[in-house]
């Protein structure tokens, strides 16, 4: 037996990209598995040990009754429960369907709707208490390691509450919105990605959800002043985190 903290990784409705980020920690992966016991990680191992676990990472949105049950069991067997990535934090991209009648969206993919048991897509805190949120689509590896280190040391990880704009300025990027009129969500989106997209010439898509004190309504109105159609503004806010109060206000402001 080992006294290393026991970690579980759960998959809900997701692309597996966030749990893949554990395996993408190549340079420090062997250190990580030296420091924690990845007790339950179905994508990586065949023998998965039962709970209880010290930390549970939940990836994915909750989109059916089976997942609600699985999530509740996860909550019971984990001391600390972490929402891993934007799907688990806010419903993520699967939540786009929440604004289309369920049967309409289902009928575009399936013929026999009797066998479909899908519900609206929500983040995990719709159903259980969540102790920490690691945002991003995918989750940022730096923040993931920071979180694991914090957990091992018993200290709070430094997760950034400010906006992507701050990180973008620190990188001395030319502002895509102000200088080129491109509709960037960096002003209202949580930092932690290092302003990854704007640094590569692409506007922020808001994948990390709303920053503290985000004024999405004001940004939405600015977008329309810059010539964006109302439907474009709504699509921007109803994407990765459309269910959050802040981004809801952005979508409803126009």
């Amino acid at each position: 037996m080992t006294d290393k903290p026991r970690v579980a990784i759960y998959k809900m409705s997701s692309c597996a990209g966030c749990q893949l980020e554990f395996l993408n920690l190549e340079p420090v992966l062997l250190d990580v598995v030296g420091a924690v016991e990845l007790s339950y990680f179905v994508m990586a191992r065949r023998q998965n040990a039962p709970g209880p676990y010290d930390i549970g990472f939940v990836e994915g949105a909750i989109t059916c009754g089976e997942e609600i049950e699985k999530l509740k069991r996860a909550r019971q067997e984990c001391r600390v429960l972490v929402a891993l990535g934007s799907c688990a934090c806010f419903g993520g991209l699967p939540s786009i369907k929440n604004w289309i009648p369920e049967r309409v969206v289902e009928s575009r993919v399936y013929q026999n709707l009797e066998v479909i048991e899908s519900t609206k897509a929500y983040g995990i805190d719709e159903y259980v208490k969540v102790d920490a949120y690691l945002k991003g689509c995918p989750v940022d590896k730096g923040e993931l390691v920071e979180f694991i280190k914090g957990a091992l040391l018993g200290i709070s990880p430094h997760l950034r509450p400010h906006s992507v704009c701050v990180e973008c300025k620190l990188r001395e990027n030319v502002c895509l919105f102000v200088s080129q009129g491109e509709p960037c969500l960096g002003a209202v989106t949580t930092a932690g990605c290092g302003a990854l997209c704007p640094s590569r010439g692409k506007v922020c898509d808001g994948c990390r959800g709303p920053a503290n004190d985000a004024n999405a309504e004001s940004l939405a109105r600015s977008f329309t002043e810059y010539g964006l159609h109302k439907s474009d503004v709504i699509r921007k806010f109803r994407k990765f985190a459309g269910l959050t109060p802040e981004f809801s206000k952005g979508a409803e402001a126009v």
């Binding site: 949105a61 089976e66 786009i96 309409v104 009928s107 993919v109």
Partner: peptide, 13 residues
């Protein structure tokens, strides 16, 4: 569980 990508792509740009 299905995530309905082909369903919610309709209407996006």
């Amino acid at each position: 569980p299905p995530r309905f990508f082909e369903g919610f792509l309709v209407g996006r740009k």
